[in-house]
Design a binder for these strands. Structure first.
Length: 280
DNA sequence: CACGAGACCTGTTCGC
DNA sequence: TGCGAACAGGTCTCGT
C-alpha cells in the first residue's frame, strides 16, 4: 500500500491524533507510554527477537513520530521503533479493549486505554526496535525533498547508471520513498519513457523529472495518499492518477490510450505519445 | 554490474 | 457457477 505520501499521512495521524470521525478518534501518540506488547505473527519482527522485544518496550514512552523514505520512525525514550509497511500494512490507534480485527500482526498496549496496532493482510510488513536507526536506514538514498538534491546532483546520479530509469527510481538506495504509483506518475509528468537508460536522460530531462517527482509526491501528500482496491484509508489521490491503472483509457493530455507493460515484474503505465521511447 | 525469476503472503478480479 | 491464473502500493535473494 504505502509509498512516501501514504507513510507521511499515517505518520501525521499518529503524531497529531484524530478528532473525527468520532468512532475513529484517537489521541496523539507522543506522550503515551507502553504497557506491554503482543506479537501475533512472528516474522513481522525483524529485530530483536520476540523475547527481548517484549521486555525492552514496556516502560518506554513515545517521544516523536517521523518518516524516512517509506520507513515510519517512532522515537521512544530509549530506542527507536521502526516500521516498514511494505504492501498492505497499516498502523492504527484503537481502544485497548476493542475486539481484534482480522490481520492484526502486532499490538502495543498503551497507558490510558489505547493500543497501537499493526494490521497487515499480506504479512510483508517489518518492525525493528533499535538504539541506532542508522543500522536500518543507513543504505537509503536522498530524501526527495532534501534541498541538497539539486537538479545538477540528480542529473549526476542518473549519469552514473545505465539502468532503465523506472527500476532506478524504485531503487531505495538511489532515492528514498518512490514506489510503483508515484514513479509511473512522475515519469509521465516529465515526459520520459520508463525504459530509457538513466544515463541518456539529458540535463533538462533530469531537472524536469526531479520537479515531477516532487510535485507528484506533494500532490499525494495533499490528498492524504491514495486509497485503492479494498484497502481504504481515506486518501483520494487515486482520483488524480494520470496513468497508473488507467490502461487503455485516453491520456489526459493527448488522448492516446495509456499502455501497460511489465518492467522488473512491476506493472508500468505510460502514454506512448507523451513519453516517446526514443529521445528527440 | 544489471537483469530476471522466485520467495514471502492474502485477497480480489479476470478469463475461460 | 466454478476454478485457476493474474494481479496488487515492496523488497530480499539467487542464478546468469
Amino acid at each position: 500500500m504505502p509509498e512516501l505520501p501514504e507513510v507521511e499521512t499515517i505518520a501525521n495521524g499518529l503524531r497529531l491524533g484524530r478528532r473525527e470521525p468520532a468512532e475513529a478518534a484517537h489521541p496523539a501518540l507522543p506522550g503515551l507510554s507502553i504497557e506491554r506488547t503482543e506479537l501475533l505473527w512472528e516474522r513481522t519482527l525483524a529485530v530483536p527477537g520476540p523475547a527481548e522485544f517484549a521486555t525492552r518496550l514496556p516502560g518506554q514512552k513515545f517521544v516523536s513520530i517521523g518518516r524516512r523514505g517509506k520507513f515510519l520512525l517512532a522515537q521512544l525514550t530509549q530506542d527507536t521503533l521502526i516500521v516498514h509497511l511494505r504492501m498492505s500494512g497499516d498502523l492504527l490507534v484503537e481502544p485497548l479493549e476493542a475486539p481484534l480485527p482480522p490481520h492484526h500482526r502486532l499490538v502495543i498496549a498503551l497507558k490510558g486505554g489505547w493500543r497501537l496496532a499493526l494490521n497487515d493482510t499480506r504479512k510483508f510488513a517489518r518492525v525493528w526496535l533499535v538504539s541506532d536507526p542508522q543500522v536500518v536506514l543507513g543504505g537509503l538514498g536522498p530524501e526527495p525533498f532534501d534541498p541538497a538534491l539539486t537538479p545538477a546532483a540528480f542529473h549526476s546520479i542518473l549519469q552514473r547508471s545505465r539502468r532503465q530509469i523506472k527500476p532506478l527510481l524504485l531503487d531505495q538506495t538511489v532515492i528514498a520513498g518512490l514506489g510503483n504509483i508515484y514513479t509511473d506518475e512522475a515519469l509521465h509528468l516529465a515526459g520520459l519513457h520508463p525504459l530509457l537508460p538513466a544515463n541518456t536522460v539529458p540535463q533538462e530531462g533530469a531537472a524536469r523529472l526531479l520537479d515531477a517527482v516532487r510535485s507528484v509526491l506533494q500532490a499525494g501528500i495533499r490528498h492524504h495518499g491514495a486509497s485503492i482496491d479494498w484497502v481504504y484509508r481515506g486518501g483520494d489521490f487515486q482520483n488524480y492518477f494520470l496513468v497508473y491503472q488507467r490502461t487503455g483509457t485516453p491520456c489526459r493530455t493527448c488522448g492516446t490510450p495509456v499502455r501497460r507493460i511489465v518492467i522488473g515484474q512491476r506493472g508500468t503505465h505510460f502514454c506512448p505519445s507523451c513519453q516517446p521511447e526514443v529521445r528527440e
